[in-house]
């Protein structure tokens, strides 16, 4: 259960999957990369609820990956991938994210694999949903240790101009490219704007009043733990994770 004062009746992974599923639009092409359990659940939940005609691509799935190979790269380069998911180690005040290393890039404390494509996907997918299973000053920093993707670039660089969002156990943040600032889009039930700001290592734009994220509904929870869980298991889409994580406490 996320550490708010209000019981949302789910764990952090389920909460993030439910909140991100609401962003998936019907009839659009949405995709997530390899090792993306929470986004996979979000996509399947959207398809099972409000987006039955969404075209979904789950690269880490046995049966739902579509075996696209380079086609997913070309689709994205053409600007035709409408939604893509990313996690990151760090996010900073200027909208940069880091999916590569912690510490000095030449002698890193931690190095992660597979951050390369993020500098392509995050520029050319129309909308990006970031997520992180923790919300604290080590994740939301003044300056990232390594820029895997830049929030703002030279105006001659063609890329998506849509704002991107970051989903955490406390809140939803939105980065607007024209103002180059993060705005507190909504706080999850049980948290205040002050709570979120205290755990964020850079100043947020806080609207007044601040929106409260609608809590997971009965339908979302039961569909996620029923139909979506079954579908993940039957299609080879992180079946062990689905068995372990998507279930009533």
């Amino acid at each position: 259960m996320p550490a708010g004062a209000v019981d949302l009746r789910c764990n952090t992974e389920e909460l993030l999957a439910i909140l991100m599923s609401r962003e998936v639009r019907d009839w659009e092409i949405s995709a997530c990369g390899a090792v993306s359990m929470i986004p996979a659940a979000a996509l399947l939940l959207a398809e099972a609820t409000h987006a039955p005609h969404a075209e979904i691509i789950i690269l880490g799935s046995d049966e739902l990956s579509h075996n696209l190979g380079k086609d997913i790269h070309f689709l994205t380069q053409r600007g035709q991938l409408e939604l893509f998911f990313h996690s990151a180690l760090q996010f900073d005040a200027e909208g940069n994210f880091n999916l590569h290393v912690i510490g000095d890039p030449n002698a890193p404390d931690r190095r992660l694999p597979g951050g390369y494509g993020s500098g392509l996907m995050s520029y050319m997918a129309k909308r990006i949903l970031f997520f992180r299973t923790e919300h604290n000053p080590r994740t939301f920093v003044d300056k990232v240790d390594f820029v895997s993707g830049a929030g703002v670039t030279d105006e001659r660089i063609q890329r998506s101009t849509e704002p991107f969002k970051v989903f955490t156990p406390m809140a939803v943040l939105r980065f607007d490219r024209d103002t180059a600032r993060y705005t507190l889009e909504s706080v999850h039930p049980g948290f205040t704007a002050e709570d979120v700001q205290a755990q964020t290592g850079f100043p947020l734009v806080v609207p007044d009043p601040v929106m409260v994220t609608p809590a997971p509904t009965d339908e979302e929870l039961s569909t996620l733990r029923g139909e979506v869980r079954d579908r993940m298991i039957s299609t080879g889409t992180y079946p062990e994770w689905a068995r372990e994580v998507l279930r009533a406490p």
Partner: peptide
Amino acid sequence: PVRGLAGTDVFERR
């Protein structure tokens, strides 16, 4: 030509 990567440290180091 590739769209993306501009402004990243991946680009800076390549």
